[in-house]
């Protein structure tokens, strides 16, 4: 069970958020209505996807108060919490890409083929493109093609051909690039990695306990963030960490645990 200490609550959260949204539309539950683009809690507190609002703004729309307040709430929440908690704990595409990654590793696809590789920094180019294209085309450009939107809208309001967008991501991750979408391309993930750079929730690493088995690096969907492993004790500083806790689950030595960037225990001294 310890191996799924965080994975079970993560899946529960991801699924239950979708389920509450679904119930809001299908049965009129008034807890959380809308979807991951914009929502209302208890018919009072607005929430909005700050990246979508940014694109709308770039597209030339005047932003209404509800959308702006909602975007600020979400922005502040993830900025304080830190890391890409949205990606690891809320976003439904995480379940799709994790599944692709699991199949990929259990069939050893990585050793059979020399896989394609693209740089992790591509997502920041995609952020730039999203904003520029929004300005040129007059619509929120990433929202238009987003498999995240297609998936949660599909589940809450019914799929059209939206499932095809999700299937593309699944196949891309399975056959082309390992952790290809979430770890390389998704501009929303890139956006949250910037937002969450200085938040408090971090993976802390204790070199004294570490036996250098490298299981954490193997399991990590963003292995570049674990550069401190085998080097020195400290906290994972990169905002690209999705705080999924897989590294904690696989570590047999108790060398990795959730910590805070601001706690002295794992301060980044050599």
């Amino acid at each position: 069970m310890r191996k799924y200490k965080y994975q079970i609550p993560r899946r529960l959260l991801q699924i239950s958020i979708l389920f509450i949204f679904f119930g809001g539309n299908a049965y009129g539950w008034n807890v959380l209505r809308g979807n991951l683009s914009s929502a209302k809690v208890l018919d009072a507190i607005p929430l909005s996807d700050p990246f979508a609002v940014l694109q709308s703004y770039s597209a030339g729309a005047s932003i209404a108060t509800d959308a702006l307040v909602g975007a600020l709430i979400i922005l502040l929440f993830y900025a304080v919490l830190g890391g890409r908690v949205f990606c690891g704990w809320v976003c439904p595409v995480n379940m799709v890409t994790d599944l692709a990654c699991k199949i990929r590793t259990s069939f050893n696809l990585d050793t059979i083929w020399k896989s394609w590789d693209i740089q992790r920094g591509v997502r920041f180019w995609v952020i730039g493109l999203s904003v520029v294209l929004s300005a040129i085309l007059g619509v929120a450009a990433f929202e238009w093609i987003s498999p995240i939107g297609a998936l949660h809208r599909g589940i809450i309001y019914g799929f059209g051909f939206g499932w095809a967008f999700v299937l593309i991501v699944f196949l891309f991750d399975l056959f082309a690039v390992k952790n290809g979408f979430c770890g390389h391309l998704c501009p929303l993930g890139g956006f949250y990695s910037i937002v969450g750079r200085f938040g408090f929730l971090r993976i802390g690493y204790d070199k004294a306990k570490c036996t250098s088995c490298m299981k954490c690096i193997e399991i990590c969907p963003e292995e570049q963030v674990l550069s401190i492993v085998n080097q020195h004790s400290g906290a994972v500083l990169s905002g690209e960490c999705i705080n999924c806790g897989r590294c904690i689950e696989v570590c047999d030595d108790n060398a990795v645990k959730f910590s805070s960037i601001y706690l002295n225990k794992y301060s980044n001294n050599k």
Binding site: G24, N25, G28, R33, G34, N35, S37, S38, A39, K40, S48, D49, A52, V53, S56, A59, G60, A61, S62, I63, A64, A67, G138, V139, A140, E143, G149, R153, I156, Y157
Partner: peptide, 11 residues
């Protein structure tokens, strides 16, 4: 340009 695709009108 401004619709955020949240579906609250639909609901």
């Amino acid at each position: 340009a401004s619709c955020i695709k949240c579906g609250m009108c639909v609901e």
